[in-house]
Design a protein around this nucleic acid. Structure first.
Lengths: 343, 343
DNA sequence: TTGTAAGCGTTATCAT
DNA sequence: ATGATAACGCTTACAA
């Protein structure tokens, strides 16, 4: 039917239907502005040719893409999966398409991906956390691209955020650990450089210790990447130190699971000999043995709320409102009182 | 510096540097076609204005985007994460950007996402599995978009694929189970509709049973979505049936982990009372207790190979070669001999 | 080596 | 209600 092996354009459709390109465009974008008879004819032509609008051309002409970009630190584990899926679902409902890419926890790559997404006409951007070079913010400002931060909440940051209080959450779980009777506590944290969530969590630990008369300076904090293997390694180190901590607070469930696995391997009973806690309440946390006491984060709600807020920002209905969602500690098996000889 | 609150264009740069737009374009795309002195002047202007090329315009003019799209069934768990990360890494090395979206296991959404990605000028597409309406293939054909299938390998499919033999892999693990002495085997499978991987795995089970003198008709196969909770539910059903199976083969590690968790809850010992196997060798599988005997899939290798093949297809260097990667059974704790009274 | 200008496929503003 | 036609920002012959 078509003259050659190439995608049909508006022009082809117009010719096929015997109308102008303007009419075809209207049929597609404002059907009520064209009389039924012509419309049917045009739509038939569209069907016959299998026409799909060229997006690049649309973006150029309309300066609007109904596309939202999201850049997450990693796709390699499920930390961001649930929240992002909810984000996409809500966006779909609102007529937007989500494009995702990963920065592999590298600021340079994130910057590159931001440029890629913006250049691609993304109407808005979802970013994770607030930590990034100032020039990125300048860039967003110059290009007038609305951006929203998730997974972190800072009231007076450069960008609005739909997140939660990482500092408070970790302080909360630390308090539970202290209430259990633990006095010798260590932490396995994610890499804090360029990661405000990880940094706030460590701060939360320190503050909770201080407020309870414990010395933050005497507390070991091992920093490592979010990886089961790394969690295991860090745990092994911690168990070799004297005095051995009776509770290990992990900055993330993945690390906690790594620690639990290593404990199992070393024949150290959890929580009888050492307690372990996580953060995120990933599915993983409730599946390992013992199940992980952790901080529950309302990922789905965060994703949905972020989608709503960001689309409103894009539509110009909102200047960007920040939301702080509640987290809670989920008590499971991996946290118990310290062994009696340690008292 | 800039006249207004809008992104600078080629024209702005050209004016700023006192050259034509063609020269600016050349500086960016073919630097050696312009003399050093001009180039420096231009690049300075680019810098000063914070210029980023408008991608839509580039795509329209050059009909090339250096973008690859991937549509995966879900981001909600880690099944595709590892392979996809490797895919992206390799693409980056080759100068391509990856855009991912999820179809939520729905053919309609997949189709919509394909159109979105193609309309956005994706140079090539990565799809999961071969099962989809013919019109999708027609669409890809008409738009001349190279596409590659992963996670599945079918020699004579419409699209080339870099995957593995789902049928053979499940047959392989079933044989191990039979060799262990099991005669009463059941399966918890993923949804097979529109999913050739899941379907091939079920077929693999049936064939292995038949080849070993067992009756596939007498074997219960429960079909459910890839979800820990669903795996748990299915396991509970299976345990309530008579005669109770002594081994449960799961179509996926997520299901296996759900089953293990439920066994734990029901006080059924794994593998002493019932053996459980998985598929994929996700990180998860080696972290639960007992660890899951499963089919190892070379996800990273698959991702890298797929990226190489697809970029070659895009470049026109390859017409699309299919590769079948090897899988292997990883023996862990969840598979053991059947309880003696069941013999 | 550099500039000119014709597209690329839409949308949107005017006319008609 | 429909049709011309000028953008949109870039690439790329072709000219100079």
């Amino acid at each position: 039917m078509s003259d050659s092996r190439t995608a049909p354009t508006l022009n082809d459709v117009a010719r096929e239907a015997g109308v102008s390109t303007a009419t075809v465009s209207r049929c597609l974008n404002a059907p009520d502005k064209v009389v039924e008879k012509t419309r049917i004819r045009v739509l038939k032509a569209v069907d016959r040719l299998g026409y799909t609008p060229n997006f690049a051309a649309q973006v150029m002409a309309a300066k609007r893409s109904f596309t939202i970009g999201a850049i997450i630190p990693t796709m390699d584990n499920a930390i961001f999966a649930r929240g992002l899926q909810a984000f996409q679902d809500e966006l779909r409902d609102r007529g937007y398409t989500l494009l995702v890419s990963s920065s592999v926890y590298s600021p340079e790559i994130e910057q590159e991906q931001i440029r890629a997404l913006v250049a691609r006409g993304a109407d808005g951007l979802l970013l994770i956390g607030h930590d990034r070079p100032k020039e990125v913010y300048d860039y967003l400002d110059q290009h007038q691209v609305p951006a929203l931060v998730a997974w972190s909440h800072l009231p007076d940051a450069l960008l609005p955020s739909v997140g939660f209080d990482n500092h408070g959450a970790l302080r909360g779980i630390t308090e539970k650990v202290i209430d259990m009777g633990h006095r010798n506590i260590a932490m396995i944290s994610g890499v804090t450089k360029g990661n405000d969530r990880a940094r706030d969590r460590v701060k939360g630990l320190r503050d909770a210790l201080r407020e309870n008369g414990l010395d933050p300076e005497q507390t070991t904090v091992i920093e490592t990447s979010y990886d089961i293997e790394q969690g295991a390694l860090a745990f092994r180190d911690l168990m070799a130190s004297t005095p051995r901590p009776t509770a290990i607070i992990c900055g993330n469930d993945v690390l906690a699971v790594g620690a639990i696995r290593e404990a199992h391997k070393l024949g150290i009973a959890v929580p009888d000999e050492v307690s372990i806690t996580g953060f995120d309440d990933m599915e993983l946390a409730n599946v390992v043995t013992p199940s992980v006491t952790t901080v529950h984060v309302p990922h789905r709600e965060m994703g949905r709320k972020a989608a709503r807020e960001l689309t409103e920002m894009v539509a110009g209905t909102s200047k960007g409102r920040s939301t702080c969602l509640d987290t809670s500690v989920v008590m499971r098996e991996s946290l118990g009182p310290p062994p009696s000889q340690a008292r």
